[in-house]
Design a protein around this nucleic acid. Structure first.
Length: 962
DNA sequence: GAGAATGAAAC
DNA sequence: GTTTCATTCTC
């Protein structure tokens, strides 16, 4: 533990030297930095990791207990090569000083809460880590560009010049066409360059892994990778046996997975609680207890992991797990002391906690018999144990210390079970409310500020979650089954989180200050202590139920009025939120920005302030433990995220949709602020390897001219953006120049070239095209007759519309032709249009999906291709080109596959029957569907009608086809 | 962030 | 056989 700090310090020192903040080589040779901060691909990881909560907690505790070592466990393999995140910068010395270039700016903002929490725990170490992580994560070596990418980079500008109206996608398409036209030898140049590039890159980054997405630590990574395992190290020791946990992306299995590495980074509020509890225990010098706890935790990992999942699954599981563990600990420890162990065992720990809290509150407030409390509450027992273990001389003081942490933990746990308790016991809310007061007092008196802070953080999350649960349960418990209730709780939780964020921003801007809201607001705005107190108070109060009201007044009203509705509302609301989020961003960028920014401020302030504010408290607890502490309440976040991801995953069907889903998920997570912590944690773990990469980069990269190229390639823009430090400016400039030279040395072909090539191209392509087309034709031939009819109908439907369009298109095309005034224009146009056919026909490469997609569309085209006359007509009449061009004009929206258009045009241009013969209805339907999918709402009004019809047509076709 | 292309690598 | 991610940059 103590070791870590020094490291961070070293890191700090390095930054000034001009090294990339992320790519730093530690004194011990460890390399830090690199791992992409996050990628969508993390979804899987996240999901996977969720279940590990318990194990994580355990390991964490253990780690905390033991000194943290720099061992990289499972992640070792991943090392340097670790996933190059999409946004990762291509590492280069030039980028070294980039500060702004973080791959995810949002992340920082998002980190808000997490960072805060972390900070709370560990002012210094964490802060450093966080910074490091962020920085380092940002910068990871990017995978080298392939030939095509190089080509694109080289020619995109040209394409854009040629087609100013074309959006980037369109440009890419054209580039693809050009690429297709490129002679093999011409291509070879790029290919060679790419290869060279790659080789150099690999040299520089021996351990570089292309796409570790799955994250299986497959890597056998190079020695350099050893890099920072700090964060992960802890769990590694304890969980050695566990197979690489994170990697298992299997969503299905997730519920069962659980145990792998307990990554401290992944631990959340619950873990924090455990930790706090442990701290309390250890603090008092009772190692035996701590060990016991650990043991229990470890023992129960499996069971916890196996815990049945509700739909919401993870969250509950996590909670249960941690709670269970805690329960186990408490019960086991308490057994000796406990007068009625049997009862305890039977009762859920949470329940006990709840009881305790309620009982305790009554006792304290009402002066009920304390003995009663002792007997029932495991928590209480725990507290007692801790106090006793601490050998408290004065029962009061000892109790306080032990109680503070334990009690808080209990409180936290209680929250989850409070509902049940309430239901079963018909406990009054009043009781809960009262209890908090006493608890609060105790807490306040507590000397462990650190713990308090942790609790506070976790309490925030838990508070919401619990509140949700409580609320939900309160209202619905009677009507809903446990599982449903849980689900609802989760939903509410999620929603609450969202709301919470919103509330923060809203609070700042608006008034709506209900007592609770104020509370939250205070947290963010007021001093940490105050906020902590508030949080603690809220947590301790257990009056979350009350809180929730303020959180979502409207919701509450609904709920109160009609419980069932509330559930429904929640769900719908959630959906709405998600869907809205996207819109929000586009429609109200300012809002989103505000939200993000606001949190950021909040976060940053706490981070900085914390250390100073409570230096003593922080110091009281050795930085090491806190340092290790990951962002707070990860479990919760993980849960939520997981939940979200699950939901989204469900919705996603195709790869594309998945992608979009990911995006949506990401946004959601971001908005909720959950992603940040998750990412940070996950990345940390991955970063281990990444850092190694960085080091490699540093070492080799600079020397390697290629490295330079990379930078230049990737980065000229970014570099400009970033402003390299003066120190390295000179060297960098040189490097940049070199890179530029190399890259520029690549042949750049003028559009004309391609135009000319187009002329010859048809031949070339025809070869393959025909070859492919024929077989397809043959295949399709069987079906054509039947489908023909349907297609014909459909086509006729749109024929008149198309005709109109064509007319206008022709006019535009003519105009354009005049403007360009050269055969080249025609050629080019035809080229761009023709290539599509050819391109489609070309051997499929790359993702299968792409391939499949293409194939689907392709066969349409191919069939068309089969008709020589068709092609000729197209080129002569330029229907396609004209259309394309027009599209370009209105074009951002033109996502429609050209093939589709071509097909349409052709069908229209020619008499339907002939063309239709070559189309597969299924294919057509697919295309139509795709088109619809691709078409964004922004589509011009004129097109809407068409769109709708098309979609209908697609449906019809598909139905008919089937 | 999605997407448009190709391609290389990883799975 | 399937996925990622690398490039660019508009939407």
């Amino acid at each position: 533990m103590t070791e870590r700090k020094p490291k961070t310090q070293r890191i700090r020192m390095k930054e000034p030297w001009g090294m990339s903040r992320s790519g730093v080589t530690l004194c011990n040779g460890e390399q830090i930095g690199c791992a992409g901060r996050r990628s969508l691909s993390h979804d899987k990881e996240i999901k996977i990791e969720l279940p590990f909560c318990s194990s994580i907690c355990l390991s964490w505790c253990i780690v905390m207990k033991g000194s943290v070592k720099n061992k990289d466990h499972s992640t070792d393999g991943e090392g340097a090569g670790k996933r190059p995140k999409r946004k990762c910068l291509q590492w280069h010395p030039l980028l070294a000083n980039k500060i702004l270039d973080f791959s995810e700016e949002d992340e920082e903002e998002e980190d808000e809460e997490d960072i805060d929490k972390v900070q709370l725990l560990d002012g210094d170490g964490l802060e450093n880590d966080e910074t490091e992580d962020n920085d380092s994560s940002e910068q990871r070596a990017r995978r080298p560009m392939n030939a095509f990418l190089l080509f694109c980079k080289r020619h995109r500008s040209l394409v854009r010049q040629e087609h100013p109206r074309l959006d980037n996608r369109g440009a890419t398409k054209i580039l693809a066409d050009w690429w297709a036209y490129l002679d093999p030898n011409e291509k070879q140049k790029y290919t060679d360059m790419a290869k060279e590039y790659k080789d150099a890159f690999m040299k520089a980054n021996p351990g570089y892994k292309w796409c570790p997405t799955t994250n299986k630590p497959v890597k056998a990574h190079s020695p350099t990778v050893t890099t920072r395992k700090k964060l992960w190290s802890f769990s590694s020791e304890t969980v050695k046996d566990v197979p690489s946990p994170k990697k298992v992306p299997q969503e299905d299995e997730m519920p069962q997975l659980n145990f792998s590495i307990a990554d401290p980074t992944q631990m959340g509020g619950l873990s924090m609680l455990l930790l706090a509890g442990e701290h309390a225990l250890t603090a008092h010098g009772d190692h035996a207890v701590t060990e016991r706890v650990e043991h229990l935790l470890s023992d129960h990992e499996v069971s916890s992991g196996i815990c049945p999942l509700t739909e919401s699954g993870f969250p509950q599981e996590n909670r249960d797990t941690s709670l269970f563990q805690f329960d186990e600990i408490s019960s086991s420890t308490s057994h000796s002391d406990d007068p009625a162990p049997a009862e305890q065992s039977e009762k859920s720990t949470l329940f006990q906690f709840a009881e305790i809290s309620s009982d305790t509150s009554q006792t304290q407030i009402n002066c009920v018999d304390p003995a009663k409390c002792c007997g029932n509450s495991s928590l209480f027992q725990l507290a007692e144990i801790s106090s006793s273990s601490s050998h408290s001389d004065s029962s009061a003081s000892a109790k306080q210390c032990g109680t503070s942490a334990l009690f808080q933990l209990a409180e936290m746990c209680e929250a989850s079970e409070a509902v049940k308790i309430e239901i079963s016991r018909n406990v009054d809310t009043d009781d809960l409310v009262r209890t908090p007061v006493s608890i609060k007092e105790e807490i306040e008196s507590s000397s462990e500020d650190l713990i308090s802070r942790n609790l506070n953080d976790s309490s925030h999350i838990c508070e919401k979650a619990e509140t949700n649960n409580i609320k939900t349960k309160k209202h619905k418990a009677h009507t809903l089954e446990p599982i449903d209730a849980e689900l609802l709780g989760l939903l509410k939780r999620e929603k609450l989180k969202k709301k919470k964020k919103k509330n923060k921003s809203d609070h700042d801007a608006a008034e709506k200050a209900s007592p609770k809201k104020t509370c939250k607001k205070r947290q963010s705005s007021e001093s940490d202590i105050e906020s902590v107190m508030y949080t603690i108070e809220a947590v301790a109060k257990g009056d979350w139920g009350i809180e929730q009201i303020p959180i979502s007044p409207s919701k509450k009203a609904r709920i109160s009025t009609s419980p069932k509705h509330s559930i429904f509302d929640l769900k719908s609301a959630k959906k709405k939120v998600k869907s809205k989020e996207k819109k929000m961003q586009k429609d109200k960028p300012s809002d989103s920005t505000k939200e993000l920014s606001a949190p950021e401020h909040i976060i940053t302030a706490p981070i900085i302030d914390l250390p100073s504010e409570t230096p003593e408290s922080v110091k009281s607890e050795p930085p090491s433990p806190t340092e290790e502490l990951p962002p707070m309440c990860l479990p919760e976040m993980l849960k939520t995220e997981d939940f979200n991801s699950n939901k989204k995953t469900e919705t996603c069907g195709s790869r594309k949709s998945e992608r979009s889903c990911k995006g949506a998920l990401y946004k959601t997570l971001v908005s909720e602020g959950m992603l940040t912590s998750l990412r940070a944690n996950v990345d940390r773990g991955k970063r281990n390897s990444g850092k190694g990469c960085l080091s490699d980069h540093e070492g080799c990269w600079n020397e390697d001219s290629w490295a330079f190229n990379q930078t230049g390639t990737t980065g000229s823009k970014k570099l400009k953006k970033t402003k390299p430090k003066e120190e390295s400016t000179l060297g960098l400039a040189k490097l940049e120049e070199e890179f530029e030279k190399k890259f520029n040395s690549l042949p750049q072909y003028s559009p004309v070239t391609f135009d000319r090539k187009n002329a010859s191209l048809p031949r070339k392509k025809k070869k393959t095209g025909n070859g492919i087309a024929e077989p397809q034709k043959a295949n399709k031939g069987v079906f054509q007759p039947q489908k023909k009819t349907f297609f014909h109908k459909i086509v006729n439907k749109y024929k008149h519309k198309k005709d109109k369009q064509i007319i206008s298109d022709k006019a535009i095309a003519e105009e354009k032709n005049n403007r360009e005034n050269s055969p080249r224009a025609n050629n080019f146009v035809s080229a761009s249009s023709i290539p599509e056919f050819t391109a489609i026909q070309e051997p499929l490469v790359g993702s299968q999906k792409r391939k499949a997609r293409k194939t689907k569309i392709t066969h349409l085209v191919r069939s068309m291709d089969g008709q020589t006359s068709l092609k000729g007509q197209i080129s002569d009449e330029k229907p396609l080109s004209s259309i394309c061009e027009e599209e370009g004009s209105c074009r951002g929206e033109l996502l429609i596959s050209r093939e589709t258009e071509v097909e349409q045009n052709n069908s229209i241009a020619q008499d339907m029957p002939a063309v239709s013969a070559f189309f597969s209805l299924a294919a057509l339907a697919e295309v139509a569907a795709m088109e619809n999918a691709h078409r964004s709402p922004r589509g011009s009004l004129s097109r809407d009608g068409q769109k709708k019809e098309m979609s209908q047509a697609a449906v019809l076709i598909s139905c008919a086809d089937q």
